[in-house]
């Protein structure tokens, strides 16, 4: 499957929480070919100071309706300009890009634990849409209650949800990895935990520690600044046990023990 470039019509674009927006695109081919963990490179509209495309994870895909959704944080001029685009207008996207999660060998007795930090929920909701076997548990970490994303989406997909916030305004006061340690301690022994994560680097590093201590495997999706997104510029590499690898091509999903911190 190779990536394609397309002008996608915006069906909706609006704020979902503090500085987070969701854009719904009509993109029939993408909606069929996208797999959880894939991303698209979005051309930012006429924004001064934003030359390069922005890499955004595919948040949901509905092949039946020919739509995909992207969830993004408004951080700079690029995403700010994107947030001003209205339904009916179109944006240019290239995708699907990247390797995606590998979840085809999952077992019926799997306990799929989705660990999300901040905007890292974006690809994990798509993964939850597609996971068919085993139980699902989403652990969401955020700065405050106002920063929590997608708890309802996960519940609708049949996920149990637990929350941690930095200030304790919702759920556990602490880190999402504190929740993870707790879950692993109390889990039912006849379920085999399988970990998927996405979030800021310190969170992923903490997951790596928990995985080592519990002799567990995990797949994590990395965020990176990208210039091309298609493997040409070699700008977004990450250090792995095999040397530098491109987040946009060999990733964005890596086995956590392949990453060098």
């Amino acid at each position: 499957m190779s990536a394609l470039q397309t002008d996608a019509t915006i069906k909706a674009n609006g704020r979902v929480a503090h500085r987070f927006s969701r854009i719904v695109l009509e993109a029939p081919e993408l909606s069929r070919t996208a797999r959880p963990g894939n991303f698209v490179m979005v051309k930012v509209p006429d924004a001064a100071g934003a030359l390069l495309r922005r890499p955004l994870s595919i948040h949901k895909a509905e092949a039946g309706r020919g739509r995909i959704e992207l969830l993004y944080e408004i951080v700079g001029p690029g995403t700010c300009a994107l947030s001003r685009k209205k339904a009916g207008e179109s944006i240019n996207v290239i995708g699907p890009l990247g390797n995606g999660f590998d979840f085809h060998s999952q077992q019926r007795d799997a306990l799929n634990i989705l660990v999300a930090g901040g905007i890292g929920v974006a690809p994990l909701v798509f993964l939850a849409q597609r996971l068919k076997k085993g139980k699902m548990l989403a652990l969401i970490g955020a700065r405050t209650a106002a920063h929590i994303l997608c708890a309802a989406d996960f519940r609708k997909l049949g996920c149990a949800v637990r929350i941690a916030t930095d200030d304790g305004s919702a759920g556990l006061r602490g880190r999402v990895t504190d929740l993870l340690v707790d879950v692993l301690m109390r889990r039912e022994k006849d379920f085999c935990p399988v970990l998927y994560g996405c979030g800021p680097k310190p969170m992923l590093e903490a997951i790596a520690r928990v995985c080592r201590e519990n002799r567990m495997q995990a797949q994590v999706s990395l965020e990176a600044h990208m210039a091309c997104g298609i493997g040409a510029c070699l700008g977004c590499v990450v250090q792995t046990t095999r040397g530098y690898e491109r987040v946009c091509k060999e990733g964005p999903v890596f086995r956590i023990d392949d990453l060098v911190w």
Partner: peptide
């Protein structure tokens, strides 16, 4: 890394 950075009307690599 980081190896690239966007700049006004350009990028540094």
């Amino acid at each position: 890394v980081p190896r690239t950075c966007e700049t006004p009307s350009g990028m540094i690599n």
